[in-house]
Design a protein around this nucleic acid. Structure first.
Lengths: 181, 181
DNA sequence: ACCACCATGTAAGTTGTTACATGATTTG
DNA sequence: CAAATCATGTAACAACTTACATGGTGGT
């Protein structure tokens, strides 16, 4: 499941332009790529040359024309293959933990301030995902199972945030009280 | 906190060779880089040219000589700056969730099989981190606070695994029972 | 005999990033 | 009047990866 499979997945949901894809990918936390033009337009060209997608040009008055990409039967077959690949474990890039690992030269107050600031980051993330649960309008809804899975994917992020917040709280308290001896 | 700061952090703990650094970084989940030669030797050269580290050549009989790198005062100052930077939120690359997101073309059984397989991955991760908690010998222990923080960092990974396992269980049951309607 | 370990480094490639270019339209 | 949005695309660069090269030592 790399970026090209992700794009195939998005197109399996509904036809989209490169610009649409860019928007969706850079908004989302699930699709964690930056969603920069360079990669998306390059991959779309490759997918199209491999016959996995096709496009139609839609002219618009007073706006630039757009290429609406659709997935082909071959594309769907390819996507199915990718979906059946055995799952990889998640890669967690928790840069803040690296920061803590080498915090020896910081005072308790400096560490506590970092923890507070990290907590604020996670809280805003949590609210973001909670909000997304409410207006989940732009999610695919092809079947009850798919609707359920998308809710669960969002839940996964929410639960990860909650676990992180509890971890922060416990760590904060212990350092504040100096009770790690 | 990028790879060069991470290397400075490791050297702030104790002097190490490039080969040592490679081993530590590629073993660990916290330092999530692959730890390939190309990056590490290149960064060590840059750090050394910037005066943030120095090295001594240690000749060994019947083994190749090694360069043992140490952090300088300037390096420690630079590291401290990096540690005080405001924390970035974690980047979670949960490729499996992307797989689930486009699972519409799979049967219930195929989805359940994927979940089981993902569960096995996470369980083995969990056991790895639990084991690391026991023989935490190679962790830095310059102060009780540092020892505590390193234990907490490991806890963070354990708790993330546990949350993930609960999430998998709940999702599995619901799909098995078809009770997502 | 073959493989892994130690230890340094290079080569060649993929992937990913920010920033730029164009140009009309809408919003503050 | 500056900015953001729509829409495509390119250029330049940074980050990261796998594989290779060298060469002695020790294990199965």
């Amino acid at each position: 499941m790399d970026l090209s499979s992700t794009i195939l997945g998005l197109l399996s949901w509904k036809p989209l332009s490169g610009y649409d894809l860019k928007g969706i990918i850079s908004e989302s936390d699930l699709f964690y790529w930056s969603g920069n033009n360079n990669q998306i337009y390059k991959i779309l060209l490759e997918l199209q040359q491999a016959g996995l997608v096709t496009f139609e040009v839609h002219e618009q008055e007073s706006l630039p024309a757009k290429k609406i990409y659709s997935i082909t039967a071959a594309g769907r077959a390819q996507l199915r293959q990718a979906l059946l690949e055995s799952p990889e474990p998640p890669e967690l890039h928790k840069v803040f933990l690296i920061q803590l690992a080498w915090a020896e030269s910081l005072t308790d107050d400096e560490v506590l301030k970092l923890l507070k600031s990290y907590e604020a980051e996670i809280i805003s993330r949590l609210e973001l995902h909670r909000g997304r649960a409410l207006r989940a309008d732009q999610n695919p809804k092809r079947s009850p199972r798919e609707t359920y899975l998308w809710r669960r994917i969002n839940d996964n992020f929410i639960e990860a945030c909650q676990t992180e917040l509890e971890w922060i709280g416990e760590t904060y308290r212990t350092i504040q009280e100096g009770s790690y001896h």
